[in-house]
Each structure stands twice: as C-alpha cells, then as structure tokens.
Design a protein around this nucleic acid. Structure first.
Length: 542
DNA sequence: TTAGGGTTAG
C-alpha cells in the first residue's frame, strides 16, 4: 500500500525513497521491481548502488551483480566504499573471477580500506583457487588481525596447502598471537591431512588452553584429526565423550563415517564393520559415503555374507544409481572372489565411468584371469573408455600372472605410442616381473637400463624373484647388490639369494653370504618378509 | 569480515 502510494505519486525517483524501495523489493525477492525503480532513478547515491548489487547477489544473479558494480565503478559518479566491495565479494567467488579480484585488489591497495575488506580479499582469492595471491595480500597487510590469520589459514586449507597452514599456526604460537576457533579448526584439519600427530597434539593442547574443547565446531575436526593420524582409540574416546545437548547434535552421521573409514584405512576391518552396525543401532541411517567406507573392510576380510547383506541395503536405499557405490561393490565382490556378482553389478550400471571399467579389469587381474582381463581391455578400447595408468597396471599384472609375455610387451609399447602415457615405476616393475618369470634376463636388464627413473626395491625384488625361479645366480647377485643399497637391513633379500646359491649347489657362497649377514647386523628372522613394517625398520642386533 | 567432518580403481 505504501509502495503503491509512492509509485502513484512518482516519488520513486527521489533518492531516499528510491533507495528504500530498492532495498525493500530486493528483500522480498522482487528483483524485477527493484530493478525498475533502480533504473528510473536519475540521482543514485552509493547506498542505492550497494543495495542493488547486494540484492542481485543474494538472488544468485552474480553476473548481473558484477555488471551493476562495474557501472557504479566506471560511470556511477559515486565513490565505491567498503560495503560496495563486501557486497561484491560473494559474486566474484561464485564466478571465480580472478581478473575482477585483481582489479579490486589494485583499488584496495591504492586507498586505505579497513581490515574487513582486505580480509575479504584474502577469502575471495582463496575461494577462486589462488592461495598464492591470498598469501600475498596477507603479507602486505600493515596490521593483520586474528580474522586475517584465520581467513588465510582456512583459505590455504581449502586449497590443500596443509603444510603452509601448519607453518602459520607455528608462527601464531611463536608470536603469542590470539588464536581463534577458525585458525584452530584449519590447523586441525591440516594436521589430519598430513598425518602429523605431533602437531595435532600440540594444537589439541592449544584448544584446551583456550577452552575451545567444549565447542562443537572444534570437536569434530579434533576427532577427525586423531582418526586420520591413526590414533583410533583416542578418537573413539573423544567420540564417546561427546555429550550434552549440542554435543549430541554434533555426533552426526558424518562423524560415524569418520570412524568407519578410519578403521577401514588402518586395516581394522572388523571394527569398521561393527562401527557400521553401531551407527545403525544408534538410530543413524547410513549414507552413500558410509557404504563406500565400509565395503573395502568387507572386501579385506572377504566377508561375502556381510557384503551381500550390504548390497541388499544399498538397493533398498536407492544408492545403486550412484557410480561410486557400484564401483565399490564391484571391487568388494571381486576381492571376495565372486566375479559373477561383480559382473552383475557392472552390467547394471547405465553410465559406466572409467573407474567402473578399471575396477572390473582389476577384478579379472586379481583373480588370475589373464585372458579375460586381456579381452576386457580390448573391449574397453572398442568402447572408447579412457585408458589411464591404473588400467595399464591391471592389464600388465594380468599378463604377468597368466604368463602372456608377447601380449604384455605389446601393451607396454602401446602405452606410450597410442595412449601417450609415460610408464611409471609400477609399470616397469610389472614388466620386469613378466619378462623375468619368462626367463628373458637379457631383455629384462635392458629394460631396467632404459628406465628414466631410478629402479626401486619393487623392480629389483621382482628380478630377484625371477632369478630364484630360474636359478640365475649371476643376475641375482646384481639384484641383491641394488636391494641392499635401497633396503639395508631387509633380511628377506639375503635369504632369497642364499637359497639360490644352495639350489645351485654353491654351498660355500651360501655360507659366506650368511656370514656377511650377521656381520652387517642383519638378523635372520625367518618367514615374515611379507610384513610391511619390516621394510622400514631394519632389525639390528645389540 | 574468517568457520568442519566422510567416498571408489593397481
């Protein structure tokens, strides 16, 4: 009614009344009306321009918001102020316009704007994927405040610059600056991502000192940090301690997912599965990510019964339309040795992505069906599926298991020639294994010579294994020489060579090798060569 | 003015 009055009397051109109307229409979501009034006004002050930009931005008309801002800036005859810039920032973020951000940046440094605007600039650069420029803005600030630190750290964390976040946290500690919740949360997430438990514990101390530990925004990243660093007991302890009204709200389904995926990743499959069941008995409904997190644990245990029951649940919940879930199911079934079920799931995917194909291919390779894998690989090419380095690992390892030497060689050549993919270490390791098992030692050594990178223990270890199959003492000595340099203290390699000597009747060499082992401090603890931790932790005597 | 956490293939 008031609005109609104003319109009938033609008062909307008045700068104050017009500004009120633009603001009012925008807030009611009547953008067209706001624009009408705005366009009719011949004398616009900065508040009207700002209201129009804010209105457009809030109505998700980001391009239009930027256009109006440009007109104000270029020919509006008014001075752009802090509010104008703060209204513009969300639009720049959504359009991810680094160019526009740079224009504004220039303007901001030519004139003195308050920290709120400069902090906004840091935020915008980060959200446009330019943490480097965000950092530069921060460095040139006269007096960065705690919000500036928090904004920069959150921005760097967003862009995966986790080490830089932790460095900033250290600086804050060293300078004894005020740490706020935002910087602590960013630092916790960075510590989790880099699995830096020591740093994580330090941040936890700081959390306690500042009494942030009762804040729901801190407890989740805190638990996640412990879970990612492998301290599952600590994470679980904090998880169970969450109590009180707010805390229970924060013990939500994502936090359950954090625990489930942490157990899975740390090989604690049984606990992963039992946490999944606990989640349900606590009244939380598993989501897509929950299934994707628990299924690898099922695969690890080859717990097919659990797997099919999860499959049923996935169907009932309608998650079968998500490729991620189907791909994980295929993987689970093939690791349980049920390629028939894996194929069933694969065939039912309407829009197979290259991961779907890769998982299925890996399934054939894993189950030792070299010919199937090879045919499937051909089918992938016929279907113009994107072949990537992972596909080649699978098909090469399938050739290796099946002893398909010529096919393997052809595929290896194809990598570079047809698909323009440079073979990586793992591809070379497959080929060394394949050629070595076939007893083609000259060819294998030539291949190792031709590698553009330093062969790793996997490559030499494959060669040593092949030497054992063919009792090739000469090449085995060469392989061992290199293995000793790469993994001093791993007794398994010596044991292999020693048995090759023994098989060839070279008892004296076998004996002197054992002597060498005990001299160099390598202890012979038989039969645990598959234990991964032995690779990094040489067992020393004394 | 800053603000979290979960996901598939070798």
């Amino acid at each position: 009614m008031v609005k109609n009055d104003v319109l009938e009397r033609g008062l909307e051109c008045d700068v104050f009344i017009g500004a009120g109307l633009v603001d009012l229409y925008c807030k009611c979501g009547r953008l067209g009306d706001a624009r009408n009034v705005f366009d009719k006004m011949w004398d616009k002050d900065v508040a009207v321009w700002n209201a129009m930009v804010a209105g457009l931005s809030q109505s998700l008309e980001f391009g239009e918001a930027v256009e109006v801002f440009r007109s104000m800036w270029m020919c509006g005859g008014v001075e752009v102020n802090s509010v104008s810039l703060l209204n513009l920032f969300p639009a720049i973020c959504k359009l991810s316009s680094v160019g526009l951000c740079k224009c504004v940046h220039g303007y901001v440094i030519r004139r003195l704007f308050p920290n709120s605007v400069v902090n906004g600039l840091i935020d915008v650069y980060s959200k446009c994927g330019r943490p480097d420029l965000a950092y530069r803005v921060f460095e040139l600030m006269h007096e960065p405040d705690d919000v500036s630190w928090g904004t920069l750290m959150a921005g760097l964390a967003l862009n995966g610059c986790h080490n830089e976040v932790l460095e900033l946290f250290d600086q804050m500690m060293n300078y004894r600056l005020n740490v706020n919740i935002v910087s602590v949360v960013s630092a916790l997430s960075a510590a989790g991502e880099t699995k830096d438990l020591k740093k994580g514990k330090m941040i936890h101390e700081c959390v306690k000192k500042n009494k942030f530990d009762s804040d729901i925004r801190v407890s989740t990243p805190l638990i996640t940090m412990y879970a990612k660093c492998g301290e599952l007991e600590k994470a679980l302890d904090l998880f169970h301690k969450l109590s009180g009204k707010d805390m229970v709200a924060c013990k939500d389904h994502v936090l359950w997912n954090v625990m489930i995926s942490a157990y899975t990743r740390h090989g604690r499959s049984q606990e992963s599965i039992s946490t999944f069941h606990q989640m349900k008995s606590n009244g939380f409904s598993p989501g897509l990510v929950t299934f994707v997190s628990v299924l690898p644990a099922v695969a690890y245990l080859a717990a097919i019964k659990e797997g099919t029951s999860l499959h049923g649940e996935i169907i009932r919940m309608g998650f079968l339309s998500h490729n991620t879930v189907c791909n994980t199911l295929i993987d689970m079934y093939s690791k349980c040795g049920r390629l028939d079920y894996a194929e069933l799931v694969f065939n039912e995917i309407n829009d197979k992505d290259n991961v779907s194909w890769n998982v299925m291919l890996a399934g054939y390779a894993l189950n030792g069906l070299g010919d199937c894998a090879f045919d499937f690989f051909t089918l992938m090419q016929e279907n113009l599926v994107e072949i990537d380095p992972v596909s080649f690992v699978s098909v090469l390892s399938a050739c290796r298991h099946a002893g398909l030497v010529n096919e393997g060689k052809r595929v290896f050549a194809l990598m570079k020639e047809k698909h323009n993919i440079e073979p990586k270490l793992e591809h070379y390791a497959c080929m060394v294994d394949l050629l070595g098992r076939a007893g083609l030692f000259d060819e294998t050594l030539q291949l190792i010579e031709s590698m553009p990178m330093e062969p790793d223990a996997g490559v030499w270890g494959g060669l040593l294994g092949a030497c054992q199959m063919h009792s090739n003492v000469k090449v085995a000595e060469l392989a061992l020489d290199n293995l000793v340099k790469l993994e001093p203290g791993n007794q398994a390699h010596y044991v292999v060579l020693s048995s090759i000597y023994a098989e060839s009747g070279r008892w004296a060499d076998a004996k002197s090798l054992r002597m060498k082992m005990s001299e160099s401090g390598v202890k012979k603890t038989p039969g645990r060569s598959w234990v991964n931790e032995n690779r990094d932790l040489p067992v020393l005597e004394g």
